[in-house]
């Protein structure tokens, strides 16, 4: 099944870089959101989204709150989530894993790392 990504980041630059990286590794199907609230609206409106790549630090609804909301909703609870963030402290990573992100990428990242993490997630869960 083809992956449809929801790329969530308040930084236009980072959204663009993530999208470019996705294109570089062969993924062309994606939707963008500028923060957690926008992402939840997009998820409600589009049931074909089956992969979320989200930043952590965003205004209003943060990436971590987004993860919690997605996991709490039975309709979206099983969508794989990859957190891509500048937060590289152990307690941050633990907090994200406790919120049930599937994998974690620390910025700055390379397209190879992104590909590796997406592949790890896809092979471990039924997308």
């Amino acid at each position: 099944m083809a992956l449809k990504f929801l790329v969530v980041d308040d930084s236009v630059t980072m959204r663009r870089i993530v999208l470019n990286s996705l294109k570089q590794i062969g993924h062309e199907n994606f939707v963008e959101a500028s923060d957690g609230r926008d992402a939840l609206n997009k998820l409600n409106a589009d049931e074909t989204i089956n992969f979320i790549i989200t930043d952590w630090n965003m205004p209003d609804v943060s990436g971590l709150d987004l993860v919690k909301s997605v996991r709490a909703n039975p309709k979206t609870a099983n969508i794989p989530i990859l957190m891509v963030t500048t937060r590289g402290m152990k307690e941050d990573i633990v907090e994200a894993l406790n919120a049930k992100v599937n994998n974690y990428v620390v910025k700055p990242f390379t397209p190879q790392v992104l590909r590796e993490k997406i592949e790890q997630i896809v092979s471990s869960v039924n997308v």
């Binding site: 308040d10 630090n57 965003m58 943060s62 590289g88 990573i93 974690y104 620390v106 910025k107």
Partner: peptide, 19 residues
């Protein structure tokens, strides 16, 4: 603007390895 006060541009991959 939301921010991480510890945001750093480092390419040593240590944080990625920890994750």
């Amino acid at each position: 603007i939301a921010f991480n006060e510890n945001a750093r541009y480092v390419k040593d991959n240590e944080s990625q390895k920890l994750a």
